[in-house]
């Protein structure tokens, strides 16, 4: 097993499949009356969050606790971080406290890579800047596999602000490793021209959502930050929604079996309408539940749970 999970590129097909299979076993725990396994008893998992992200933090927290690990939540707010402590000093502190795993969310791309140089424990990237968010890609893959029965050969459209999306980068890497085809859709300002060469050859780019929809098994809508408007990536939220938002009529262009995903939090009315978000095709709530199972699998496997 790998020591850190920093990027979707860290996972080969076997390792990724092992994580997804383990997650399926972990999911059975959620259905029990006592939702707990003793696998990581006595191990310490630190959630080091430099960005507010209640959703991801509680998902990792629940995952670690269901494996009986001791969980320390270290958030930038109200900690020594606001006093200007460097990432390295924080890392050395966590090291001294005996952290077996550090789950890190950070606004700077690559911060988890830096951290991995300074701690002995495993580092899990829980989202770094505009770089990657590998456990999100794993839970997305898990959700697709659960709903559609396979990953190889699926056609997945990822729609929106690919340029700034860590979710998109990790998904492109992982999905291509697992044999799915990805088409990135959005305005040209938000899709790097070299993305296929940079991440995964064979990744397609389209600027026309309507043309792509009839041909996909999965459409994944990315959150679009309204601030991007002020930076001239697109003229207005209204125009964005008209060209790249997923509404009812567009959803009906999808094949009957196709699913709609969103990593959350959603901007309802911007990239996705309530009709779509709340439709039976939507997996948005499932993704949250699957997130816990997948993160349990990641922590279990990284911390050597499979060797016991």
């Amino acid at each position: 097993m790998i020591r850190h999970l920093l990027s979707g590129a860290d996972l080969d097909a076997d390792t990724a499949t092992q994580i997804l299979d383990t997650a399926a076993e972990m999911a059975t725990v959620a259905g029990r009356e006592v939702k707990k396994l003793p696998a990581l008893r006595g191990r310490t998992v630190v959630n080091l969050f430099y960005e507010d992200s209640t959703r991801t933090r509680i998902s990792f927290e629940a995952a670690a606790k269901r494996l009986s690990a001791d969980v320390i939540n270290f958030s930038a707010k109200g900690s020594s971080v606001t006093k200007g402590e460097s990432l390295k000093d924080t890392a050395l502190t966590l090291q001294a406290m005996g952290a077996d795993a550090v789950v890190v969310r950070h606004p700077a791309s690559g911060a988890p890579h830096r951290l991995a140089n300074w701690v002995d424990g495993s580092v899990v990237n829980a989202g770094d800047g505009t770089h990657e968010h590998p456990t999100q890609a794993l839970l997305d893959a898990y959700t697709m596999r659960s709903r559609l029965g396979r990953l190889a050969g699926l056609h997945v459209a990822i729609v929106g602000d690919v340029l700034h999306s860590r979710v998109a980068r990790s998904n492109v890497l992982l999905l291509s490793t697992l044999g799915a085809k990805v088409t990135l859709v959005g305005p040209p300002t938000l899709i790097p021209v070299n993305i296929s060469a940079a991440l995964a050859p064979g990744t397609d780019v389209s600027y026309d959502l309507d043309a792509v929809l009839p041909d996909v098994d999965v459409v994944m809508m990315l959150r679009v930050q309204r601030e991007r408007m002020g930076d001239s990536y697109f003229p207005s939220a209204r125009e964005y929604a008209r060209r790249y938002g997923l509404d009812g009529p567009r959803m009906r262009r999808l094949p009957a079996h196709a699913i709609v995903m969103h990593p959350g939090p959603m901007n309802r009315g911007m990239e996705i309408t309530p009709e779509v978000a709340d439709s039976p095709r939507s997996t948005i709530v499932e993704q949250v539940a699957n997130g816990v199972s997948v993160r349990m699998a990641v922590l279990y496997l990284l911390l050597g749970g499979n060797n016991r």
């Binding site: 690559g110 505009t130 770089h131 860590r166 980068r169």
Partner: peptide, 9 residues
Amino acid sequence: GEVSTRLGL
């Protein structure tokens, strides 16, 4: 370039 796209910088 390609590397900045990959690294998210």
